[in-house]
Amino acid sequence: MNTIKEKFSWTFILFIIIAIILTNIPILGSYFRVINTVIHESGHAFIALFGGKVHEISLFMNTEGVTYTSHSSWFGGFFTGGAGYVFSSFMAFLSFWLISKKKYKLLITIYLFFIGFNLLFWVRNFYGVFWLITFGAGFLFILFKGSSKIVQNLLLLIASVLLVESIASSYIILYLSFIQPHAAGDATGLYRATHFIPAQVWGILFFVQAIFFTLIGFKTNSFKIE
């Protein structure tokens, strides 16, 4: 039987603490947090492509984002509305899993794919384009010029930011679904799509799935970094 010590990673805890501190620094913190916004909005967009159309994505300095889509069926709109938080949580898990397998170049390539796809096809507002170009340039630099240690540490930081933000943003939606059920983002959108399942239920489900992916990460030792 694995001991708690064997499953526990002080490196993981350290980077989570750094990510929490970083994301609360004015301006700089918001800049790094937008990576979660990109993943979240991309989740909406990629699902919308199955039978629908993505018109535009906007990314904002306050870390908010909006995806404008149209759908040929109710199911398309429903699954698109629920994809953002699940996609963010899954990407946080996948990032740590790839890091634990030392698949650094593959992970950077995945991040660059999201950035490049958004830049070429969807994002058109000024801050969104600025963020994609500058963050993408940073990934390209560490891909070709960064040492193995630098690459690992930076990817650990990005993955930690994704994990922290996936949990924090889903908790905020959970909270808003109870105090402002008519203005709770995707939870409200899904309530309007279903009419009979209240925003509070969707808020709970968004938060539960974020915790689920975190627990799966611990169970599979994805968060154990050597």
Rank of each mutant, 00 (worst) to 15 (best):
F87T: 15
S73Y: 00
K53W: 10
Y191V: 05
Y85L: 09
P198G: 00
K53N: 15
R33I: 08
L155H: 04
K7T: 13
V38D: 06
T3I: 12
A199T: 10
L215T: 11
K7E: 12
L107M: 02
F178C: 08
I216N: 05
G82P: 10
N153Y: 12
L190A: 01
A92M: 07
G203C: 02
A210P: 03
F212T: 10
P181Y: 00
N62Y: 07
E41W: 00
S72H: 13
P198N: 00
G185T: 02
G146L: 02
L157P: 07
I158Y: 06
F114Q: 03
F15Q: 10
L140I: 07
I216E: 08
I17G: 06
S166W: 02
L14V: 10
I4Q: 05
Y175A: 14
K224R: 14
A193K: 13
L155E: 01
F206V: 10
F139P: 12
L215P: 11
K7Y: 13
G203Y: 05
N62E: 09
I25H: 03
N36R: 03
N2M: 14
T3A: 04
L132G: 06
F79Q: 10
I115S: 01
I13S: 03
K103T: 03
A19V: 10
Q209K: 09
G203H: 03
N36Q: 13
M1W: 06
L94F: 09
N36K: 09
R192D: 12
F78M: 12
N62K: 05
W74F: 13
S72I: 12
K219A: 11
E56N: 15
K224W: 10
L22N: 03
I16Y: 06
F206H: 06
G203S: 04
N118G: 15
A184C: 03
G189C: 10
V161G: 05
S58M: 13
V66H: 08
H44L: 03
Y111T: 06
F212P: 04
V129E: 04
H44S: 07
F15M: 12
G116T: 08
A19Y: 04
A159K: 04
K103Y: 07
L162E: 08
F223H: 06
S88F: 07
F90S: 05
F117W: 14
S70Q: 04
G146S: 01
N24V: 03
A159C: 03
F144I: 15
H182F: 15
I25L: 09
V123A: 01
V201C: 07
L163T: 14
F50L: 13
L98W: 02
F144M: 14
L59K: 05
K101F: 06
F114V: 05
I17W: 01
V123F: 00
L107T: 06
T67E: 11
L106T: 14
Q200E: 15
T23G: 08
F206Q: 08
E41K: 01
I110E: 02
I225L: 00
A45M: 01
I4M: 12
T23K: 00
F135I: 14
G138N: 04
R192L: 15
L94C: 07
I115G: 02
L106H: 08
I99Q: 05
S147V: 03
G51D: 00
V123C: 05
I115Q: 02
